[in-house]
Amino acid sequence: MFDVLAADIKAERPVALAEVIEGPADALGSKLVVRPGPPVEILGSLGNPDLDRVAGRDALGELAAGITVTRHYGLRGEARERAVSVFIESFAPPPRMIIFGAVDFTASLVKIAKVLGYRVTVCDARPVFATRARFPQADEVIVSWPDRYLGEVGATLRPRDAVCVLTHDPKFDVPAIVSALGTSVGYLGAMGSRRTTDERTERLRAVGVDETSLARIMAPIGLDIGARTPEETAVAICGEIIAFRAGRRPPSLRDQEGPIHRDRVRVTEP
């Protein structure tokens, strides 16, 4: 059964494992592997068909929500009893990051996003720049206009996913942002200086983007940690995404004023 579970996890197919971690000694360690399909497939047993049915149904629900949790049941799956504790672990496919713009900063962002477990797509309309050789760690490199690409995959984006617009060219980033705003993506960030950001905001207003939608855009992208290099900038962006998902508000560049690149404080030995 473990080989089925491992194969699903590796192939990034959603799967859940429900296992008795407390209860009668002979049930300890008994488990279900729950595959949502379609069709739904439930392998194994927790030792009682009614318990299997109830826990299997709960595991499907937790998996759909991406939640890992311990649930308690009676010996035959009764609610509000605690004879059996079942640890339900959800293996949801990894979150996605779509990066628009095959620029210098993109390669660093791909690297850090991969470390964080994202499935990363780089998309740029220019075939000279959007090449596998430049982004070997990306899961996909797509040559397409951002809005056309989001037209194809936008409906699959979820609140835990991220779209990063690094093009800082109104020709690409305005349509990219407008398309991204039409999806359920959680994090939407756009790179650019404060001037670029202000000009872009005006362009977005001009094409009819309302203030609520504008407030979704993290721009200038990234936390205000004094990042300068592409690698540091990638950390600033990913830090902002982590904070966003955790519901925290550390200082983002969006919320500050003044130059993004200030002189660093020089630390010298006394």
């Binding site: 491992a6 996890i9 590796k10 672990e89 293996f91 477990g117």
Partner: peptide, 10 residues
């Protein structure tokens, strides 16, 4: 779990 699957397999 994902990160330990290769070691387990080996």
């Amino acid at each position: 779990m994902r990160e330990i699957l290769d070691d387990i397999e080996r």
